[in-house]
Simulated scan of single mutants.
Amino acid sequence: MSISSSNPVISAESLSVVLNNKKILTDLNFNVKSGEVFALLGGNGAGKSTTLKTFLGMITPTSGSAKILNLPVDQHATELRQKIAYLPESVMLYAHLTARENIKYFLSLAGINKRDDEINHALEKVSLQPKAWDERLSQYSKGMRQKTAIALSILRQAPIFFLDEPTSGLDPIAIDEFNQLVSQLASSGATIMMVTHDVYGACQVANHISLLRDGQLVGNFSSPEQGHINTEEVHAAFAARSLA
């Protein structure tokens, strides 16, 4: 299951979802290639969570498909989960364990054995301060817990990341640090899809943004070769003052 640089790693093809006789997603189409950051931007009730759950294999499409590595997720969920790192809005790690203890425990569940120096290198890579490595996560901020979870994903060598409202509840410095980390992951070849309502954060880090409203894509934006996606343009579309 190798990842091609030319073929999309994540793709929605006429993806529609109906739940309890209510249409939640209607004919979504997008592609994300290796090394790209894709942001699905929308407000509450837009359908972001449903889209994410569909790609995680938790919801079956009513029509169309959600594909990862060109495989329909609903048919290959178990196989694909080995390639995926999922970062929920509230990271699920054990508060009574340290960062290194959490990482060793979850790696053991996956049958992965890493040396202490490899774990330390991953923690350094996500810029978690060494003095915090042996502190219990009950003492951690949300940003520090996120860094621990990403270090775990790096050690699992997960090439695909799904991020759910990753900057929600973070202070401005932590948001900048997180965006830098996401950019570094993409530069190393990871493919990243994030769902968010944070216009500024999405514009700072994403190569492509799709605006989701009432389960439909109503705007698409791409970054220039140099620089970021225009925040004012996306904000205007997000606030429904215009549709770019």
Rank of each mutant, 00 (worst) to 15 (best):
A110H: 10
K142T: 05
N70A: 08
A240D: 14
V234C: 05
A110I: 00
M144K: 11
T231R: 13
W133Y: 15
H208L: 00
M144T: 07
G227T: 03
A186R: 09
D171G: 00
K67I: 05
F238H: 14
T78K: 15
P72H: 02
H228F: 11
N20Q: 10
A46P: 03
T98A: 12
A110V: 00
H197S: 13
N230K: 11
R81D: 00
A244Q: 14
P166I: 00
R156H: 04
D116W: 08
P72M: 02
T148V: 15
Q216Y: 01
D74A: 13
A99L: 04
V234M: 03
Q226N: 14
I68Y: 07
A110P: 00
P166S: 09
L93F: 13
I103D: 01
E135S: 14
N220F: 09
V234T: 05
A85I: 09
L212I: 06
D27R: 07
V234N: 01
L69G: 01
A85Y: 09
Q157K: 15
N179V: 06
E124Y: 10
L19G: 06
A206Y: 00
I84Y: 05
H197T: 06
I154A: 04
R81G: 00
A239D: 14
L123T: 06
K48L: 11
Y140E: 09
N220Y: 10
L28E: 06
I150H: 10
V73H: 01
